[in-house]
């Protein structure tokens, strides 16, 4: 982990209309994310953690404020630039895997590889998540844990600068969830890429380099963790 700043987020707000009510999902967030660190964004539902992740990932645009990636403000990006940004810089892992049911595991990974400039090899990434022998299976033939590992492989394969996980264990049972976290940690250790994971599960914070706690759209605390725990030792 180096000390160079990857993302510099300043005074970030996001509000949207829900019927007649204006929801303030983020109320002026300031945060720096460093190169190569494992960050966990922790908070209850409605705390704004997923909104923050989506803004960092270029899936959404802020109401105000800045998200600078090495000095470039992606908050200023238009639709086309955001698409390019997602393509080249970000790897996403979702709670519900979001694999394409009509493509096999390796095809799902290839779908990501084909769209970006410097992808990793599909077979290698699948092997990295321990699914080399399941490459030709369709999502419906894989367990939930396996599907999530394919999703991780798909994100990693793009060779992105940052890996964003939105409740990646949320739809999985305890054992499988831990297994997926191990894979994430393994990928992080091996690639040295920055990983940001959103969760409401406080136990997961134990494996992070830094833990950012959010509540009601604002950062409550930021803690550094000098000795992160191995995922297999986490308990919840």
């Amino acid at each position: 982990m180096s000390d160079s700043v990857l993302y510099s987020i300043t005074d970030l707000t996001k509000s949207y209309q829900m019927g007649e009510v204006t929801v303030h999902a983020l109320r002026g967030v300031d945060l720096e994310i460093y190169d190569g660190e494992f960050v966990v964004l922790l908070g209850p539902s409605g705390s704004g953690k997923s909104t923050l992740l989506n803004l960092v990932g270029g899936m959404d645009t802020p109401t105000s404020g800045h998200v600078r990636l090495r000095g470039t403000d992606i908050a200023e990006f238009g639709e086309r630039e955001l698409t390019a940004y997602r393509r080249e810089h970000v790897g996403f892992v979702f709670q519900f895997f979001n694999l394409i049911p009509t493509l096999t595991a390796s095809e799902n990974v290839a779908l990501a590889a084909q769209v970006c400039a410097n992808p990793l090899l599909v077979d290698e990434t699948l092997a990295m998540v321990g699914l080399a022998d399941r490459a030709d299976h369709f999502p419906s033939q894989l367990s939930g844990g396996e599907q999530q590992r394919v999703a991780i492989a798909r994100a990693v394969c793009k060779n992105p600068e940052v890996l964003l996980g939105d409740e990646p264990t949320g739809a999985l049972d305890y054992e499988t969830g831990k297994l997926v976290l191990e894979v994430l940690k393994d990928v992080h250790d091996r690639s040295g890429r920055t990983v940001v994971v959103v969760t409401h599960n406080a136990a997961i914070a134990g494996m992070a380099d830094r833990v950012v706690r959010l509540r009601s759209g604002a950062i409550q605390s930021i803690e550094s963790n000098p000795c992160p725990v191995e995922p297999k030792d986490l308990r919840w």
Partner: peptide, 16 residues
């Protein structure tokens, strides 16, 4: 829709 959204998150252009 989900597949298409997923492709969008992967960085596929609207056109694609």
């Amino acid at each position: 829709e989900r597949d298409l959204a997923c492709m969008s998150s992967l960085g596929y252009e609207h056109e694609a």
